[in-house]
C-alpha cells in the first residue's frame, strides 16, 4: 500500500491536470484551480520542512562537534537572530518590512544585502583568474569558442569597437609569428612554404580584419547572440522539453518510481 497509494494519487492527479489543460471547462477548470491552491499550500509547508531539516542537520553537527561545527553554530545563531528580529520589528511597527522597521533598515539593508552582494562580487575575481588559466585555444573548436566569446565580450561594451581591432590584430600577429617560427624549422619544403605562406597571409589579413572589427564588432556580437547562440539554445530547449514530457509520462504512468524513495 505504501507504493500503490502514492502511484494512484500521482496517476489520477497527473491525468486530471492534463485533461484540465486541454479542456479548461467545468468541472476540469475549477479542478485545476483547486489543485493549484493545494500546491501553493503544500509549497508553504515545504518551506517549514526545509527549515526543520536545515536546523536539524546543523544542530547535529554542533552537538557531535563535527568538522567546522562552528560554522553550523553561526548559521543557527544567524537564523534565530533573523527570526526574532523580524518578529520583534513586525510586532512593533505592524509589519516586519514596513518603512519604520529596524529589521528592514538595518538587518536587511545593511547586513544581508552587503553580505550577499560581496559573495557574488567575488565571482568577478574568480572568473578573471579562471578565464586566464582555463580558456586555452588547444583545439579548433576551443579556438572558435574563445574567439566568439571575446567578440561578444567586447561587442557588448561601449569601448568594444575601438579596442577589438587591436585585440584581433594581436591574435593574428601571434599566429603569424608562431607559423613563421614553426615553418623555419620544417624540414619538408612543402610544409615549410605552407606555414610561412600562412604567416604572410595572417600579416596581410590584419588590416582588413581590423577594419571590419573597428566598424562591426557590436553587430558581429549581435549576430553571434541572435543566430548561432540562439540556434544552439533552441535545440537545447527542445531537448529539455521532450525530456520533461517523457519523464512526466513515466511518473504519471508509474514507470518512474524513484520519487517514492
Amino acid at each position: 500500500m505504501k507504493r500503490e497509494v502514492p502511484i494512484a494519487i500521482t496517476f489520477i492527479s497527473g491525468v486530471l491536470l492534463v485533461i484540465a489543460f486541454f479542456i479548461p471547462h467545468e468541472p476540469f477548470g475549477s479542478l485545476e484551480q483547486r489543485f493549484n491552491d493545494w500546491y501553493i499550500i503544500v509549497s508553504g509547508f515545504a518551506l517549514i520542512l526545509g527549515i526543520d531539516s536545515l536546523l536539524l542537520h546543523h544542530w547535529n553537527k554542533v552537538s557531535r562537534r563535527s568538522k567546522d561545527w562552528f560554522h553550523s553554530l553561526s548559521l543557527i545563531i544567524a537564523f534565530f537572530v533573523t527570526l526574532i528580529w523580524g518578529f520583534y520589528s513586525g510586532i512593533k511597527t505592524g509589519h516586519f518590512l514596513s518603512a519604520q522597521s529596524t529589521f528592514r533598515q538595518y538587518f536587511y539593508m545593511y547586513v544581508f544585502v552587503p553580505l550577499q552582494a560581496t559573495m557574488f562580487s567575488l565571482l568577478a575575481f574568480f572568473i578573471a583568474s579562471a578565464a586566464y588559466r582555463a580558456f586555452r585555444a588547444d583545439r579548433f573548436e576551443a579556438a572558435l569558442l574563445l574567439f566568439s566569446a571575446g567578440i561578444v565580450m567586447l561587442g557588448r561594451v561601449p569601448l568594444g569597437n575601438a579596442v577589438a581591432p587591436y585585440m584581433v590584430g594581436l591574435v593574428f600577429l601571434i599566429f603569424a609569428y608562431l607559423l613563421y617560427s614553426d615553418g623555419r624549422k620544417e624540414v619538408d619544403p612543402t610544409r615549410r612554404y605552407l606555414k610561412i605562406g600562412g604567416a604572410v597571409l595572417s600579416l596581410i589579413l590584419i588590416y582588413p580584419v581590423g577594419w571590419f572589427f573597428l566598424h562591426y564588432t557590436a553587430q558581429t556580437a549581435g549576430w553571434i547572440m541572435n543566430i548561432p547562440q540562439l540556434a544552439a539554445k533552441r535545440g537545447i530547449f527542445v531537448g529539455i522539453a521532450l525530456g520533461g514530457i517523457a519523464m512526466s509520462l513515466r511518473i504519471i504512468l508509474g514507470i518512474e518510481k524513484t520519487y517514492l524513495r
Partner: peptide, 18 residues
C-alpha cells in the same frame, strides 16, 4: 567595459604563454 577588455587581454596573454 574595462574589465571585459582586461579579461580578453588576460585570455590572449594566457594563450601566448600556453
Amino acid at each position: 567595459a574595462a574589465v571585459h577588455i582586461l579579461i580578453v587581454i588576460f585570455i590572449i596573454l594566457g594563450n601566448i604563454g600556453y
